[in-house]
Amino acid sequence: MDTEGARCVDVVRAQGFCFVHGDAMRTTLSGVGGLEDWLAFAGSWEALGPDPYLARTGRARKRRHAVFSAARNGAVVRAPHQPHFQTTEYNALQGDIERWFDPVTDAVADGACLQTILRYCVGFFGALAPDVERWKVEVHQFRIEARPGEAGEPTPEGVHRDGVDYVLVLMIDRRNIESGTTTIHLADGTELGSFTLRDAFDAALVDDARVFHGVTAVTALDPTEPAHRDVLVVTLKRG
């Protein structure tokens, strides 16, 4: 792990979260593996499917989902496609239902970028939990669109925990939008910090067992033009 990675481990250990600027994050990831397919990786957000479950609440979001299994010192292996499930304790809006989303494509799952990001997550969060032998890793590609007269909601469930151990949120692309500020809170609502993922590779590293997080709604700077916020979310749970 490089110096920046070690610093971030200490920060997460101390306060439960860490914001990493894109340049530093890209350098750290490059030390783990290749990123040569970044343009194709980022371009895959153009082919996300709708979130039919959120549509039932009158909201809009696009996404794809995949599950992997990762040994502490071994390979990251994709698991059979399966639903995403959270209890109402963690998702009052959509809890206690099995949600099936379009799968992450094989090209993305097997590509250099995602494999590098997954190896990084296993190494980074593994340093915070060295007793864990195996992780269940879930990958979510999200696109939040801001439409004329309608703000996009990155976290429609509000300030929340995901019900996992650790979370990486990585900015992929942010186009023609304002706001989208991430806030970190204690269980009693006390705000610990805030930051905005603006540039590619900007990242949030979160100890989900300790802190809550939310993201403010996004609106279009120019309502006549397309506006979106694309992020990759990777969660790790003791498996």
Results as ranks from 00 to 15, higher is better:
L186V: 00
V218Y: 08
P223S: 15
A220R: 01
D173W: 00
C121V: 11
Q86R: 11
Q82G: 12
E191D: 02
G95N: 02
P130H: 10
D131K: 07
R143P: 01
E225R: 15
A47L: 06
C18G: 01
I184E: 00
A47C: 04
Q94V: 00
N73S: 08
E225T: 08
G180Y: 00
T105G: 11
L232T: 09
D207T: 04
I144T: 12
T155H: 13
E89D: 13
V77N: 13
T190S: 10
T116Q: 03
G180V: 01
A79S: 12
F41Y: 15
T182I: 02
L192D: 01
A220D: 00
R210N: 08
V231N: 14
G158I: 02
D106V: 11
G49K: 10
E153C: 01
W135I: 11
A55F: 04
T155A: 15
A217V: 14
K136N: 14
L118Q: 08
R26T: 01
D102N: 15
H213C: 07
G74R: 12
E89L: 08
V76C: 12
L114Q: 03
H84I: 03
V139W: 00
E138Q: 02
G49R: 12
L128T: 14
E150V: 05
F195Q: 12
N73F: 09
V231L: 13
G123K: 10
Y166W: 15
D96F: 05
D202M: 05
T224R: 06
A24I: 09
P50H: 06
T87G: 09
D199I: 00
T57D: 06
L118D: 04
Y120Q: 07
V108Y: 09
L236T: 02
G34L: 02
Y53D: 12
D37T: 15
E150M: 00
F41W: 15
A70K: 04
E133I: 14
T224L: 01
E4I: 13
N91F: 04
G16T: 07
R147E: 11
P130L: 04
D37N: 15
G180I: 01
S179L: 14
H65V: 07
Y90S: 12
K237T: 15
R72T: 14
K62S: 13
I97D: 05
P226R: 03
G149P: 08
P223M: 09
A92W: 13
G5L: 07
V67Y: 07
Q15C: 15
V233E: 05
T105Y: 06
A14C: 02
T196S: 08
A40R: 11
I172M: 09
W45D: 00
T3Y: 08
A79G: 04
D2K: 14
D131H: 09
E98M: 10
R143D: 01
A40G: 04
G180T: 02
D106W: 03
G95L: 03
D10R: 11
I117W: 11
V139S: 00
K136C: 14
L128G: 11
F19A: 13
Y120V: 07
E133N: 11
D131V: 10
D207C: 02
A127S: 12
